[in-house]
């Protein structure tokens, strides 16, 4: 009987082993996140210290269609966007140091959209991961051209193409980390940024608040980038499933 028991044990263990292999395989295939420690996030606010600089109005008179869109809502520059409580909008936050492995190389599947609306860019700054696809759309009844001007040394290839009214969206992605200025030559005042970063990122709303999701536990350097004021960094430590805090303050020049 003992032998029989042994054989039973053997059969069971083989079954278990098989189950484990299958489970392991499926785990590795589905990148089952339970295997890793629960992810945390980084939140905070970005503020401006001092009075917001005067943002000049935009004279769009060269294109009467644009003028019409702004008849009741005058357009102005968006170099510095300040909301309530001096919250600074359009600041890109990303982890500049400390990320490694999957968290660094994971590519978000979401496709951010950069819209050309009323002869302005919405959003003014579009953040994205390296290699992440994004869409450029137009809601306007006048043609625009999208002309990102990356530094050729980074490996990002500049392009320049028009989008007439009703044209399908342009889908693209960038190869390297860079804050890429984008402009429309037809409407020279149109100015925006593609903020290409590696790893999780966030962008502040008008109140200056942000949340970087899906940050694995660890110690990081978070960088905040604003198009006029440049970079600021802060060190944070994220515990599993917890939310760490990092606030930034830019000084008005």
């Amino acid at each position: 009987m003992k032998r029989q028991d042994n054989s039973k044990l053997a059969a069971v263990s083989v079954c278990l082993l098989l189950c484990l292999v299958v489970a392991g395989l499926s785990l590795s295939l589905t990148n089952w996140e339970v295997s890793a420690a629960p992810e945390g996030k980084i939140t905070g606010t970005v503020k401006l210290d001092g009075t917001a600089p005067h943002m000049k109005g935009i004279d769009m008179s060269k294109d009467p269609w644009c003028v019409k869109q702004h008849a009741n809502d005058p357009a102005h520059l968006e170099l510095v966007v300040v909301g309530k409580d001096n919250g600074l909008g359009n600041v890109v936050l990303y982890i500049s140091e400390g990320l490694s492995g999957d968290a660094l190389n994971a590519k978000p599947t979401a496709v951010p959209v950069f819209d050309q609306k009323n002869c302005l860019y919405t959003p003014h700054v579009l953040a994205m991961d390296v290699g992440q696809e994004f869409k450029v759309e137009t809601s306007d009844q006048t043609a625009h051209n999208i002309h990102p001007e990356p530094n050729p040394l980074t490996g990002n290839i500049p392009w320049n193409q028009s989008q007439p009214p009703g044209a399908p969206p342009v889908t693209k992605s960038w190869k390297a980390v860079e804050m890429i200025h984008v402009k429309c030559n037809i409407h020279p005042w149109m100015s925006g940024y593609f903020a290409v970063v590696k790893g999780p990122y966030a962008i502040t709303g008008e109140d200056g608040s942000y949340t970087i999701e899906n940050v694995p536990p660890g110690s990081y350097t978070v960088t905040a980038w604003q198009e006029t004021y440049g970079n600021q960094t802060a060190k944070v430590t994220v515990a599993g499933g917890q939310s760490a805090k990092a606030d930034f303050t830019f000084k008005a020049k």
Binding site: Q163, G166, A167, V170
Partner: peptide, 8 residues
């Protein structure tokens, strides 16, 4: 794009 000429 979509058969509609761009200005360029």
């Amino acid at each position: 794009p979509g058969g509609v000429l761009t200005p360029e």
